[in-house]
Write a protein that binds this DNA or RNA. Structure first.
Lengths: 161, 161
DNA sequence: TCGGACTCTGACGTCAACGTCAGAGTATTG
DNA sequence: CAATACTCTGACGTTGACGTCAGAGTCCGA
């Protein structure tokens, strides 16, 4: 007789307890519960006894939250919007893939994706522009200083000759 | 007899009250007092009665604070460090310009500037790298969607023919 | 089946970055 | 020189994003 693992499709998807999950995402257990409280994530399972079990996808979502916090400086309210967009995109993808979705509807769905992604891109570009300006300023200073140093070098060369 | 304004060097530098200053920088009066309390800024003047007077340079400093908050996501403690660097750079520039500063000392000063600017650049580049990665992801999605849309268009063209 | 490790749900605490308000003083304008 | 607008210094309040702790329950390997 074959074992059940031989019959299982690809992998059994090992759900993690909150402790492992937290370490994996470099956040606290409290943070995970807090995010859940705000409706940002929901562990994809619970044990019969009520312990949270996180899937790899859940972890991705958590990592996403942290990125949005640290990179874009969004607060959890704004992040909720982004995650809602993510969910919407997933649903759209699903419907798009369905064989009984006609071309017209598909176009609609694609347009929606386009709009969402463009909005995201705009948000990022705004931050990016500010940062680049910032960086350019520093680079200017850097070049000026380098120029002066080079000048000093050449002058020293002349004098020592 | 000539008026005093005719004798004044270039401009009388119109110091602003805290209300104007706050509006000008798009922050609250409370924030200005708070920043001062933390030692981040000091209004360059006070009226005889004790009212704060802000110079244009002061405003620049405040705007800098806001930029560092919103663009780099620094907290006020970290911002203090940056502002200290700014002050140090100003002092260095001053000494550099002095006629009684020798070439060797000038090189030292320039090296110091270089180090400071490079550190700043590194900080910015870190954030920038993250953001660019982020942006690239979105751009990837965007391209995929555009590709699918184009495909849909061409197919529609064929069918209608 | 039992002991140690892990997790649960409240509930209160904390910290940064201000918001707000009172009561008193200051500047300005007609 | 009075009315009006602004500003001062405390001091307490608020908000977001968790930290921390207690008391109880759950899981798992020996």
């Amino acid at each position: 007789m074959t074992t059940s693992t031989e019959l299982a499709p690809p992998a059994p998807a090992p759900l993690l307890g909150i402790g492992r999950a937290a370490r994996e995402c470099a956040v606290s257990e409290r943070a995970l519960r807090y995010y859940q409280q705000l409706g940002l994530i929901t562990p994809s399972g619970r044990t019969p006894g009520g312990l949270r079990r996180y899937s790899e996808e859940d972890l991705g979502r958590v990592r996403r939250i942290r990125e949005l916090q640290t990179l874009l400086g969004l607060n959890l309210d704004e992040i909720r919007v982004v995650l809602d967009n993510d969910d919407r995109l997933a649903k759209v993808r699903q419907e798009y893939r369905s064989t009984r979705t006609g071309a017209a509807r598909r176009r609609e769905l694609l347009e929606e994706c386009l709009a969402i992604h463009q909005a995201t891109a705009a948000t990022i570009d705004a931050k990016l522009a500010g940062l680049k300006r910032f960086r350019a300023e520093v680079d200017g200073s850097l070049e000026r200083v380098r120029g002066l140093l080079a000048e000093l070098d050449s002058r020293a060369g002349l004098v020592s000759r």
